[in-house]
């Protein structure tokens, strides 16, 4: 465990080498994808397959229509929303990403959909398509700070309602800083001057 992350090794050349990547296969000849493209010509921005999982990037405006189509279409039949989560990618042009994992009971197939969002952009809510999205969207809003348009009850799910910030953002501090909620409810104040505390394992 002595080796530290991102620290250049003396050899130099091997340290600058880019890490290996999982094979990303272009998804072209999928019947469902063809149906989807025929119905919504501009919706699918990218279609690839990663480790056997079809992964589609969908335009933000059309995600609800695409989800409803995938649920109701007699060949797609994605009747189950397995998971919905969000990611913060600070270095990307659109720094937020909402990730959907769909499952089809009749066909036993999983698909992954992605929606990229610019800073401050809201994602259309899919609660009207699958009720399961209700708490998952609330959690994504709570922890990553992605707003969902048209959600019936968008409140924080896990953290207190008056908490400040969204912990799963990459710029959220790991070490304890001044926090109004903690001061008010837990009678905690900031660490003394000079205290070093980092949550990162080095």
């Amino acid at each position: 465990m002595e080796e530290k992350k991102d620290k250049p090794t003396p050899k130099g050349a091997s340290a600058t080498k880019a890490p290996p990547t999982l094979p990303i296969v272009e998804l072209t000849d999928d019947p469902i994808l063809n149906r989807l493209r025929a119905r919504f010509p501009t919706a699918v921005l990218e279609a690839v397959e990663i480790l056997g999982m079809p992964t589609l990037t969908i335009a933000r405006e059309q995600i609800v229509d695409v989800c409803r189509f995938l649920r109701d279409d007699e060949e797609a039949l994605f009747d189950f929303l397995t998971d919905l989560t969000a990611r913060h990618i600070p270095e990307a042009e659109k720094p937020f990403q909402v990730i959907y994992h769909l499952y089809s009971f009749p066909r036993n197939v999983r698909w992954r959909l992605k929606v990229n969002l610019a800073e401050g952009e809201a994602c259309p809510s899919v609660v009207s398509v699958w009720s399961a999205a209700n708490w998952m969207e609330r959690e994504a809003y709570d922890l990553v700070g992605v707003r969902f348009e048209g959600h019936p009850d968008l409140r924080r799910l896990l953290l207190p309602e008056d908490w400040e910030g969204h912990p799963l953002r990459k710029d959220y501090p790991l070490e304890f800083r001044y926090n109004r909620w903690c001061e008010k409810h837990l009678n905690m104040i900031a660490f003394r001057e000079g205290t070093e505390y980092s949550g990162r394992f080095e």
Binding site: M1, P20, L22, I50, R110
Partner: peptide, 13 residues
């Protein structure tokens, strides 16, 4: 000794 998976994503359940 140090596990560095390739860049990518996976869902497993």
């Amino acid at each position: 000794k140090i596990i560095r998976p390739p860049v990518g994503e996976v869902y497993h359940s």
